[in-house]
């Protein structure tokens, strides 16, 4: 028999909500625990979100200079080899007098004059010793590192090869006006993000952080434009260079 009291909406009744909330809570806790354990067990090595700068400069190939000697001025890198031209019509060379010019890599053979075998008098050996330094100096190879690269522009630093090449070619065109005061130079910094295509062509250039100096900003943008196109990037960098690009942080 139903009464008005039992029908009242104020009368407490059993409800599934408590059970549902409890189960849901347990499931969430378990899920969170699972994710934590899963990510702890299977996650890749942690990546730092702060971009680490790459100091990329190719090391020049060569022999290291004796540190006790006074430094030599760094020579500019050799110009790129000229484009291949059609072979000129053969010209008959004079048979005996023609002397082949030595190539840069060819070893210089010491001249042997059989007719004048060196007389081992003390005067000559003294002069030989005296002149040795001068002769050696004129034929010496450029200084650098034995594990370096022919296109390297630095004798000291090294970095990943593609970024090293990219950095070197931009640096070669990195001309800034000398009129920027020295005290201002110390604080100048500009960031340019460039995106590259599969063949190394420049897809996008963005001055993402200007230096505040009109001349400097124009110079860094000019350096990139003059340096482009770059060489084709390696397969594993292509996607990243196209989508995210590479940030070039310029300082004087």
């Amino acid at each position: 028999m139903t009464t008005a009291r039992t029908e009242s909406l104020l009368q407490p009744r059993p409800t599934p909500i408590v059970a549902f909330v409890s189960i849901s809570l347990v499931v969430h806790v378990l899920f969170a625990a699972f994710l934590t354990i899963f990510s702890w067990l299977f996650s890749p090595p942690r990546l730092s979100m702060d971009p680490e700068p790459i100091k990329a400069s190719l090391v020049r190939l060569g022999k290291k200079r004796d540190e006790k000697l006074l430094p030599r001025k760094e020579e500019p890198p050799p110009p790129p080899p000229p484009a291949e031209k059609a072979a000129p019509a053969p010209v008959a060379a004079p048979p005996d007098k023609a002397v082949a010019l030595p190539s840069k890599d060819a070893k210089v053979e010491p001249k042997k004059d059989t007719a004048k075998e060196p007389a081992k008098d003390t005067k000559k050996s003294l002069f030989d010793a005296f002149n040795k330094t001068g002769r050696a100096a004129s034929q010496e190879a450029p200084e650098g590192d034995e594990a370096g690269d022919k296109d390297g522009d630095s004798a000291k630093q090294e970095g990943e090869r593609y970024y090293g090449l990219l950095s070197a070619v931009v640096k070669r065109n990195y001309d800034v006006s000398d009129t920027i005061p020295e005290n201002e130079r110390r604080t100048l910094k500009a960031t340019v993000v460039i995106k590259l295509g599969a063949t190394g062509e420049l897809l996008d250039v963005d001055l993402s952080k200007a230096s505040g100096n009109e001349l400097f900003d124009a110079a860094v943008l000019g350096a990139i434009k003059k340096a482009a196109p770059f060489g084709p990037p390696p397969e594993h960098l292509r996607d990243s260079l196209k989508k995210n690009g590479v940030a070039l942080v310029f300082s004087p």
Partner: peptide, 23 residues
């Protein structure tokens, strides 16, 4: 979602040693 930030990381190259040239 965990992996996205890693993909978005951008390589940064520092370039210094400008050739200061006369204007």
């Amino acid at each position: 979602l965990v992996a996205v930030p890693a993909l978005a990381q951008q390589t940064v190259i520092e370039i210094s040693g400008a050739h200061f040239r006369p204007m």
